[in-house]
């Protein structure tokens, strides 16, 4: 009995109709918004986005990610300032100077 009441109630809930909206509802909304200015509270992120849009740059996220990757690639390929090799071929400060200018 309870199941059939459930089913009947569900059927009644699903049978609830909706009156159709006015045909021009969407257009009225669009027209009303046209006369209204948008709020200017921009977050820093939005300012950056607008700047990028202004100069037709790709999305800021992609640019930042690319810059980071590029920086890491360049950084890893730079010669490090580690200890000099032991075969005596590494330049020393004194060898940079000519013999006349060697440190006294």
């Amino acid at each position: 009995m309870s199941d059939s009441h459930d089913e009947k109630l569900d059927a009644m809930l699903r049978a609830r109709g909706v009156k159709a909206p006015s045909e021009d509802l969407a257009e009225r909304i669009i027209l009303q918004a046209r006369g209204i200015p948008q709020a200017q509270n921009s977050s820093l992120w939005q300012v950056i986005r607008q700047l990028f849009a202004e100069f037709h740059l790709p999305k800021p996220g992609y640019v930042l990610a690319s810059a980071l990757i590029l920086g890491m690639v360049v950084g890893f390929n730079m010669p490090s300032d580690g200890p000099a090799p032991q075969d005596g071929t590494a330049p020393t400060i004194q060898s940079v100077f000519s013999p006349e200018e060697a440190l006294l």
Binding site: K19, P21, L25, I29, A33, P37, Q38, S42
Partner: peptide, 30 residues
């Protein structure tokens, strides 16, 4: 609109609600 109508059971009321919601979105999309 359909959802608003189910709540308020009034065509004009539902239209006003949807219009209000969208216009608020336009005013402050942030």
């Amino acid at each position: 609109y359909r959802l608003a109508f189910r709540f308020v059971q009034n065509k004009e009321g539902a239209e006003d609600i949807v219009q209000d919601a969208f216009v608020k979105l336009w005013e402050d999309p942030a």
